[in-house]
């Protein structure tokens, strides 16, 4: 597909080049450049940039106010398709630490991140320190060459807990005086993640066996499913060009009807049309299927809300799935902080 290309960027770039006096004569440079430099050596807080909110949130939990944390991609943004703007890059180059997911989650940005790392900056792929055995591969392994992994690691809280450790280590390395504070923060968030994990295990286990099938638009829930013993069926593949076949829809409808699965799920960053087709198909066979709510897959909820935190996001998913598939879970989740969404 034609794709969205750097038109905006080009515009800005052209403007900038014009300002800079065409090809290379930088007229007003020196005065503009003084500012950030002067600050750099002072006693200011380290600047941390996270590509996705799941990382940024955990980092914030660990570091508290000791560092200045910014997140590049906002709510509801699909990181696979994110298009960095010039200010993102400037911000990236101006940060002391950059955390990114890795495993090629960040699409086009990955290249720039790897380059920055090679240029000696502290740019850390948080998942890539996880041992390969616990990462998931797509159904059929790719040929030789580079290993290809499923990047949606945050869906398994226990793995994300280990990622939190990576983040804390990196912070401590970069800012030794804060070591203790980071250790405290890490212990705290790890405890809360463990509690969440326990809640999720309990809640999801209450779903009747036959109905332990999570049907959703695309395949982001493999880690989640592995952790909690669910079967996950995506309508279409992970690739952005992937398109479902009619056969796939028919098979899923058959599965829904046969197992009397009560709900299917919509994801925050994927159109829901596919899922609606399943509901229609099952209805035509006399089986009523509900849309079990919107799950957060690649992005979190609005900043400032409970769903806008990592814990809240997973809590939301677990609670919504449990309740929709006929399990037992409190309406407002593990910490009773979920927005009361009308779950059918």
């Amino acid at each position: 597909m034609g794709g969205d290309r750097g038109f905006a960027a080009l515009r800005r770039r052209a403007l900038l080049l014009g300002l800079a006096g065409g090809l290379g004569l930088l007229a007003g440079g020196p005065s503009a450049l003084a500012q950030p430099r002067a600050q750099a050596q002072g006693a200011r807080r380290p600047r941390v940039l996270a590509t996705v909110a799941m990382i940024g949130d955990v980092a914030r939990e660990i570091a508290g106010n000791r560092v200045e944390i910014a997140t590049m991609m906002g709510e509801g943004v699909d990181p696979h398709l994110y298009r960095p703007t010039r200010s993102d890059i400037v911000r990236m180059l101006g940060s002391d630490i950059v955390f990114y997911n890795g495993l090629l989650l960040e699409g086009k940005l990955t290249d720039a991140l790897v380059r920055a790392a090679r240029a000696g900056r502290r740019v850390v792929p948080v998942t890539e320190r996880l041992p390969a055995e616990i990462l998931l591969k797509p159904a059929e392994p790719g040929g030789e060459g580079e290993q290809i992994w499923d990047p949606h690691v945050w869906m398994d809280p226990r793995l994300w807990s280990r990622v939190a450790a990576v983040i804390a280590d990196t912070l401590a390395e970069a800012d030794p005086p804060g070591r203790e504070e980071y250790a405290r923060g890490l212990a705290d968030i790890q405890a809360r993640i463990a509690a969440l994990d326990a809640y999720a295990e309990r809640a999801l286990a209450s779903i009747p066996d036959r109905q332990r099938v999570l049907i959703t638009a695309h395949d982001a829930f493999h880690y989640f499913a592995r952790r909690y013993g669910l079967r996950v069926e995506g309508i279409q593949g992970l690739s952005t060009e992937s398109e479902a076949g009619v056969r796939r829809i028919e098979d899923l409808v058959a599965l829904l009807v046969e197992r009397r699965i009560p709900a299917v799920f919509v994801e925050s960053s994927v159109p829901e049309r596919n899922v609606r087709a399943l509901v229609d198909g099952a209805a035509a066979r006399g089986h009523r299927v509900a849309i079990g709510g919107t799950l957060f897959s690649d992005a979190m909820g609005a900043p400032g809300s409970y769903e806008g935190t990592y814990i809240g996001m997973i809590d939301h998913n677990v609670t919504a799935i449990t309740r929709a598939l006929g399990g037992q879970a409190p309406e407002r989740g593990a910490n009773a902080r979920l927005a009361a969404r009308a779950t059918p």
């Binding site: 290309r5 038109f7 905006a8 398709l81 298009r83 398109e243 159109p271 596919n274 609606r276």
Partner: peptide, 29 residues
Amino acid sequence: GVVLLSYIQALPQGGQAGLKTFILGQTAA
């Protein structure tokens, strides 16, 4: 359209990376 999309991407309500695919149908669905 792409310029507009990158503007929307930065909006608080935006967060619609899927906007482009929104009107793109999927035959099977």
